[in-house]
Design a protein around this nucleic acid. Sequence first.
DNA 1: TATTACCCTACTTAAACCATAGGGTAATAG
DNA 2: CTATTACCCTATGGTTTAAGTAGGGTAATA
Lengths: 136, 136
Amino acid sequence: MLSKKTKYGIKALSFMAKRKENTPIQISVIAESEKISLKYLEAILLTLKKAGILSSKKGKGGGYYLLKKPKEIKMSFIMRTLEGPIAMVPCVSLNYYEKCDDCPDEVSCSVHKLMIEVRDASLKIFNNRTLEDLLK
Amino acid sequence: MLSKKTKYGIKALSFMAKRKENTPIQISVIAESEKISLKYLEAILLTLKKAGILSSKKGKGGGYYLLKKPKEIKMSFIMRTLEGPIAMVPCVSLNYYEKCDDCPDEVSCSVHKLMIEVRDASLKIFNNRTLEDLLK
DNA sequence: TATTACCCTACTTAAACCATAGGGTAATAG
DNA sequence: CTATTACCCTATGGTTTAAGTAGGGTAATA
């Protein structure tokens, strides 16, 4: 299941990408428009800022703004930042690899290969789709 | 993330499919071999039985056995039975459709279309892979 | 008829998710 | 300089789900 965190994050980013000018936009504006809890959205945007997707400006007239063009923001990066690993099991994750504690041998594991297939299929989509693609 | 429930279920089914004869096999044998909690595995196999994948025989010499040939058991059915919806959001689920409460309009939702793509890619894999494929 | 092994219900623990509350702090306008 | 704005950070709690445990019931078989 996609978490609300990720969903809200994508919606907020889409909202920002949709605007004509990339001027700072207040959290409260996005929260109201997209019907997201203000405080929760604060935390999400902060995460995206730390990841390098967003930057912010303080004080009057301040707010958040995109650091890159929507076309340059891959969905795979957004997904990893908010949702975590794209793979369904840690033992096939490219960025968050971890050995399964219940698996003595990955090669003979019946689940392993199947999950690699699924990961590759998902990754293919997330790598080839950018924030811009979502606006259409 | 793939739940342990699903992972254990697939491992148990693979174990059964790997045997030469489809004679009843005791839960305890599978649990030991695959290092799965006995009681937990009981619940999982019961679910698979109710779904029509397995059947069981009581009394001495009893146990669980496959109702179909491994070749005839699609991974998509196993996944739906144990893991639930294959889609990442309810609003793009084929078998468990539900409207998103935070989404006024699916058509204009930026997440919707992306998740349909991901669902289709995953489904393509799960529909074209059977239990037999996992044994290789 | 005793044994075997499935069947069922309820409970516990731990973790993650989804917020909410409240204040701190930096930047800006005037 | 100072008040305001709006981001920044920490802590806390409710809810849900996953994962596993406990204990006994019941049907089938040798």
